[in-house]
Design a protein around this nucleic acid. Sequence first.
DNA 1: ATTTATTATACCAATTTTGATATAATGTTC
DNA 2: GAACATTATATCAAAATTGGTATAATAAAT
Lengths: 92, 92
Amino acid sequence: MTIPFNELRKKWRKDPKYLKAYGELEPEFELARELIMARAKAGLSQKELARKMGTSQPTVARLESGHKPSLKTLERYAEAVGMKVDIRLVAG
Amino acid sequence: MTIPFNELRKKWRKDPKYLKAYGELEPEFELARELIMARAKAGLSQKELARKMGTSQPTVARLESGHKPSLKTLERYAEAVGMKVDIRLVAG
DNA sequence: ATTTATTATACCAATTTTGATATAATGTTC
DNA sequence: GAACATTATATCAAAATTGGTATAATAAAT
């Protein structure tokens, strides 16, 4: 079944408040958010996505909670949700 | 001193020929190229960049030759050349 | 309220990446 | 051509991530 929208919204509402306390947007939460949205868009649970990636549900949870993955793992995640990873170095 | 432009051009000329032989653009070479260009733009040698990253020159060479780094390492590279990593999942 | 589904966390072995050293290959300067 | 600078490759120990299991917490369905 698909991920309920208000669950994602609650996550998103938590994040900005937390991040505002620190006065900046943490990059690792930005990526985690990107992953969660991509998975929601694909209509998959963590368990279903883990199967497609050839890994386990806790591994997916860890990727979506701000841990820093390897590019290899990131690309496997993206492929499992039917997308590709696009990486740029931009002016900082 | 800055990286001679024709050295980079030679690299770029090698890459497309090699890649055309396989009929596609390998993502890891795409990232490697992005890194090399960013470093060239910052006017740094691998040794100088390694110092800024807090690592060694061979580690930088490995990053720029197609090996898959962790995000943490990628962010350290980007910060050392005065940039930020921008990661998107895009339709594939 | 109970059951089921989903997500999050902890721990540890296995695997992968980093970091350092040594050194080779290539290019530049003189 | 020699000296110097830059880049590339190999190897191995250390560090970090993955993968799996167990389990807890939360949410949804009944």
